[in-house]
Structures are given as C-alpha cells and as structure tokens.
Simulated scan of single mutants.
Amino acid sequence: MQFLRWVRPVIAPAILLCLFAGPASAQIPDLRLGRVPTLAPLVKEVTPAVVNISVEGKVRQDNPLYQDPLFREFFDVPKQVEKQISATGSGVIVDAQRGYVMTANHVVEHVTSVQIRTKDGRKFAARLVGRDPGTDIALLQIRDPADLKAIALGDSDALEVGDFVIAVGNPFGLGQTVTSGLVSALGRTGLGKQGYEDFIQTDAAINPGNSGGALINLRGELVGINTAIISPGGGNIGIGFAVPINMARRVMEQLVQNGRVERGRIGISLQDLDVPVNGHVQGARVADVSAGSPAERAGLRKGDIIVKANDMPVRSATQVRNLIGLTPVGQRVRLTFERDRALGNATVEVAPAAEERARVRTSG
C-alpha cells in the first residue's frame, strides 16, 4: 500500500484539512413538486458544525550536521533539532454545550497551542482533551463555547455499500468545500498505519486538507471522520477512508473520562476464516486461549468460531479485536460462538492489558 497517504495537516504553506457536520432534518426536495433534486438544504444544515483547526507545535528532526563526522568530532552537534511548525486541519463540533470538537489525531499530534475557527468566522482558543494514535482520533475542547452548532452522530454499523455520503472540507486550503459520493466498501483493514482499523471507504473526494473532517449520510448525521487517501500523485483518485463514528464515539467517551484510551485484553488470539467453516464464510476463529485468562474462565476454547460480538454479526478477526480493544477495562463483551456445530455464549470481562501481559509471561 505504498500510495497510502494520511491526509495530514501540512506544515505551512501547504494545508491538510477536512470538514464535516450536521443534524438530520434536511431532505432532498420531492421531484413530484417539480423541484430539482439538490443537497443544498442538507449542506446548509451541517456545515456550521465543521470548523477549521490551526495548530502550532514542535517536532524533533534529524540534524543534517550530525551526519558530518567532522562536525561531530569538533563541535557539540545535537543528533536532533527541534523545529517550530504551523499546521491546519478540520474538526467537527460534536457537543455544542461543552465545546467538544472531534478531529484526527495526526492533525494535533505535535500541538502546543490550537485555535478553532467556525464557518461564520469566529475564532476560539481550544485545549487538547486527549488523543488516540491507535484509531487516529483526537478530541479538542473550545474554551468558553458560545452559540455553537453540533452535528448529530449517526450509526456507522447501519451503513451499507452504495449509501450516498457527503464530505465537507478545506482541500488544499481553498476554503470550505463539499463533495459527494458513495460508500465504496466497509471494514477496510491492512492499510498499515493505525493499530485499530475498520475504515469506511468512499469515493467522495477527499484531498490533502481534509483530515479530521466528517463523512455525513443523507440524514445529516456524522458517520465517519476522514483520515486517509490512496493517491499515487497526492490528490484524489476516488479512494478515501474514514474512521467509523461508532469507533470514534467509543474513543471520545474514554478521552473525556480519562484523557486517554485504556486498552484491555481478554486473553485470546484470533484469525480470519480463510475457508468456510460449517457454512460460515465470515467470523473469527479462536487460534489460542491463554491459560487463566478471562476468556478461558468464560469458557472459550481454541477452535471456537466467534459469529457475534455484542449481538452484532462478526465479519472478521479485526472487528473483534477492535471491539475488545475499545471496551473500557472492567466492562464485559458478549461473544456468540460455534463449537461442534452448536452455538454457545460467553460473557467476558475485559482485563487491563498490562495485567494480562504480565499474567501471560508468568504462565509461559
């Protein structure tokens, strides 16, 4: 996937950003009334919830002088130097009262200060609540929020391939731009960047400058946070990716509560089904169960085929890993599995990852 590009915030003068937002009241006009179909009412409804994010930060870079042996010998040359950067990106207001703005982690990963500008031109100082590199989601909070408009969160699990979506953003720093397209695929993984992948793929144009923006359905609901594109030349070729809002919402809840995401484990390793098993073409095979783990105590065994997780059909091993990894420690996950052509159920409590790793080392 050598052409994968994370639509990063660009370091001045280039811009990497994205926008998105909106409630659910706008509709396409009815053709029977003699009106031309348009998304204009929907766009007017959602765009006030999309904001521009300006970031000041510092990054450490390799010092070119350090590569010269003469300089290293006669001068005190540091191996790395610190560089001040400016970058821009997009965000989505998801809670107007508390001033919460969701964006992409890579937009704010080097932040020392951040400013948010709304569609009507107002500027607000903001603070970083927390960020999660594993899902590329971050949460900001506007200081002294006033007269903000939030977007309603949709249900990304209800998306289907072929659903219409729109994206709003600031590609190449041109200003707020709206594009439309379809959900091209669901559950995309293996892009090789983030640790918890379950991307929505869309052909709605996403370009550098769209990061942290939103993917919206035709109900005006936020269904994804735009994050990456595949692009041989740096521009849109119709293959873009967004983090599903259901995943982003779980991250946001933990960031609000803890300022970070606390990963948990239940003590199993999983594999995709490479061939159908007892009529199942989708699911996750339990490849191993750690002795003494929560999974073993709940009754799971090697070879079980997990077909549902929290009552949702399981497509892949990645889906189950994502669910467990984003479930707060101490909460439980309901797994339905098939063993010897019979269905069984297990309710497993998620244990702290560090505790689980220590237990595995102890048990060998």
Rank of each mutant, 00 (worst) to 15 (best):
Y100K: 02
F199N: 07
V256H: 01
A242R: 10
L140V: 09
I85H: 06
D198M: 12
G344F: 07
V129I: 14
Q201V: 11
Q2S: 14
D155V: 03
G235K: 01
D136E: 08
I305G: 12
D304E: 02
N345L: 15
L153R: 05
G154N: 03
A138I: 04
L139R: 05
G154V: 01
R265K: 14
R285M: 15
H106D: 11
V10H: 06
L255E: 08
G173D: 06
L19F: 06
D304G: 01
G169N: 03
A150W: 01
I206H: 02
R127G: 04
Q331K: 15
L270Q: 07
H106C: 12
R334V: 14
Q2A: 13
G34S: 07
K119D: 10
G91N: 05
L186F: 02
H110N: 15
G173T: 01
F124M: 06
R127T: 13
G220Q: 04
V101E: 05
Y66V: 09
N345H: 14
F199V: 10
K44V: 09
V183W: 03
E56P: 01
K308E: 15
G209D: 09
D311W: 10
V333S: 12
K123G: 04
E338M: 14
V320N: 05
I245H: 03
P41F: 02
N52C: 07
A138P: 04
I305M: 11
V59Y: 00
I28V: 15
G325E: 09
N278A: 15
R8W: 10
V350K: 08
R131C: 04
R122S: 12
A204W: 03
T318I: 10
S316F: 07
P41Q: 02
V223A: 08
Q257T: 09
V256K: 14
I93T: 00
G22A: 05
F164K: 08
D198C: 09
L42T: 00
A291E: 13
A248G: 12
I216A: 09
L335P: 08
A342T: 12
R117L: 01
Q27P: 00
V243K: 07
A287Q: 13
L19D: 08
L300R: 00
S269Y: 05
V286L: 05
L300Q: 00
A214Y: 00
G209T: 03
P23L: 02
G173N: 14
F20L: 11
A291V: 09
S211I: 05
S290P: 00
V183T: 03
T189V: 15
V320W: 13
L215R: 07
V329F: 11
I15H: 13
G325A: 15
H110L: 11
R249D: 09
I324D: 01
I85S: 11
V55M: 07
D340E: 15
R143P: 01
I15E: 11
G283D: 14
P276G: 12
R127Y: 04
G91P: 01
I11Y: 10
